[in-house]
Nucleic acid binder design. Sequence first.
RNA 1: UCCCCGAUAGCUCAACGGUAGAGCAUUCGGCUGUUAACCGAAGGGUUGCUAGUUCGAAUCUAGCUCGGGGAGCCA
Length: 433
Amino acid sequence: MTTITIEQAGKFDGQEVTIKGWLYNLRESGKLIFPIFRDGTGIIQGVCALKESPEAFEALKGLTQESSVIVTGKIRAEQRAPGGFEIGVSKIQIVQKVPESTPFPIQLKEHGVDFLLDHRHLWMRTPRQAAILRIRAEAIRSAREYMDSQGYTLTDAPMFTPAACEGTSTLFEVNYIDDEKAYLTQSGQLYAEALALALGKIYTFGPTFRAEKSKTRRHLTEFWMLEPEAAYAELPDMMNLGEGLVSAIVQGVVKNKSRELEQLKRDITKLENIKPPFPRISYEDAIDVLGKAGNPAKFGDDFGGDEETLISKNFDKPVIIHRYPTAIKAFYMQPDPDRPDLALAFDMIAPEGYGEIIGGSQRIHDYDLLLKRLKEHNLPQESFQWYLDLRRYGSVPHAGFGLGLERTVAWICGTEHIREVIPFPRMIYRVYP
RNA sequence: UCCCCGAUAGCUCAACGGUAGAGCAUUCGGCUGUUAACCGAAGGGUUGCUAGUUCGAAUCUAGCUCGGGGAGCCA
């Protein structure tokens, strides 16, 4: 007997096959039962008549949701079945029956967020959540494929760091050996710079941690970031790379995960449109745009969620905002030689209010300037000795950015909340399950 | 840390000062083409906690706890 996955069912029309999965739902009608099976690749309706398969009928009768089953039967095209195919159940083996006393908690109806998050380990079995996690995997695959194709080498930055990368955000402190303090990384960037000066073009990809007390649908305490860094690269190179990377991710998902996007009822035409070039506006132009829209932002203000959404509403692609005031940006960012009050930095804002998905910049490569900035920001010079070394031995202009995986995937999927696009979301006040 | 909102059956919600209710889930019964199936019946509650106002509080007030959304900060 051939064992197939549900997504392959259409190719086995008229054949007797076996499916290994779980009971997703059951509709009974006296002497006829319609069980819906899932196996992680999709769902398929089964039919079982008392007259034709009495043994299977008795086994299925009253079977509880999410009981694990191995089903054998003939696949046939059937217009009345969701998905166009159904399986005529001739034999069923119950691997484990969910007890009636403790029914599966996730029902086929609306649930509250708190309840779903408490049952995340079971919530992920629903077709929608499975589709999202498959899209996440494809986003990672296409991102890496694109970076590799551009000559970037995947390297890894450490999770434990001796000090803040940017000095602003709150860090998770870890007790290290005796008097030593260590922190969970909030960015691999500083290490990426060292690697770029060693290998030329590199990227890191891994989890990163922010102890900010952010409670919004755009924030996670633990999230994944892809951070390219390239020696001899300047701001425009990174804006081009970011544009290419985001396009490659979106097009990869559109091409290879269209079924999942349909499952999420995502408007695919909006995603098909995501190709270079992306609109680019300077920070100062963005201030003008905001002013015309009635927003009071003035030069020197940083943009919050409202401002980002307002600007992105003017475009149907991600928008790049570049050259922010030096005063509101991180200490390591290279000032514009023509306008020292502006930093050679850029952000990429996703459409539809999903916020900032990329933040990047050209880095200071001059030793004296970097030292001055460290002092201005009251950062512990001892912790940054190795970082200063990079400006002492063959320093070159270099640049990079960080792409937030979950925000990107949340935008592609059109989910209301970022917590749906990571298997086990970690947020402030939530570490279970 | 600050601002706003919420907490009632396993779940989603209603009742808004006068005996705590519905749908789903569970149990039992019915149904041969169902589509979160449907129809009938049953069980299921210290209304988040503590105090107060009142003849009477799920409902009004205060504090606390937990959660949600947002600000700040960021990807």
